[in-house]
């Protein structure tokens, strides 16, 4: 349901329907902003990235179609690439490695009930099933946008193996997530 309505909104946006862009904005503002802040660690830069994302949507740059998978996957990947561009351009020095933080923030307040609480719990549980190195890999690659060279240096692995290790870590995580979701379905 949600997928088709995203796709419908996207179609209307391509017809320059401002109300449709606003609806899509309302639907994804919070998750995109939270995601972009996690990536950039800078709310101002996250806002700049979010604006760029909606400019791209409005202009129709990098068109979405169903061969690109789910709309949200495409939207998140596009947003991630915008953020990586801005992170690499920013004047501020890179955050020191010790301060990069973990893939999962263990200090998160338990009281807070996110709109996406269930999704969040599931993916966090799945992350716990990865090795420490795999978690670091996903944090550096996916959220921090580090180059393969930097990842090779930080994780002390040969450059030539970075891509396949990222791929394996993602694959493992997807498999774990699938397992978590199945168990969740049974518990219900």
């Amino acid at each position: 349901m949600e997928k088709s309505s995203d796709f419908m909104l996207y179609g209307r946006i391509q017809q320059k329907d401002k109300a449709a862009l606003e609806q899509l904005y309302d639907r994804y503002e919070k998750i995109l902003f939270s995601f972009l802040v996690k990536m950039t660690e800078d709310p101002d830069l996250a806002e700049e990235a979010l604006q760029e994302v909606f400019i791209k949507l409005w202009r129709g740059t990098g068109e979405y179609n169903e061969s690109k998978g789910k709309f949200t996957s495409w939207l998140f990947t596009m947003s991630r690439n915008v953020a990586i561009d801005l992170i690499r351009k920013r004047k501020k020095p890179m955050v020191p490695l010790e301060e990069i933080g973990d893939l999962v923030n263990n200090e998160s307040t338990v009281e807070e009930v996110a709109e996406w609480q269930e999704q969040k719990e599931q993916i966090e549980t799945a992350v716990q099933e990865l090795s420490g190195e795999q978690q670091k890999m996903i944090q550096l690659f996916y959220f921090k946008g580090y180059t393969h060279e930097k990842i090779a240096g930080i994780c002390d692995i040969p450059l030539g193996t970075v891509k396949s290790r990222i791929r394996l870590a993602l694959k493992k995580l997807k498999k774990s997530l699938h397992g978590v979701q199945e168990r969740g379905a049974i518990d219900d």
């Binding site: 998750i31 939270s34 995601f35 996690k38 998978g69 996406w116 997530l177």
Partner: peptide, 23 residues
């Protein structure tokens, strides 16, 4: 599957309330 995962990964982020005037 890897592509589907990218539709889930952002939910690892801590929820942050967007600034009121940002929209």
């Amino acid at each position: 599957q890897i592509l589907e995962l990218t539709g889930e990964l952002p939910y690892l982020a801590e929820p942050i309330e967007p600034p009121a005037e940002m929209k």
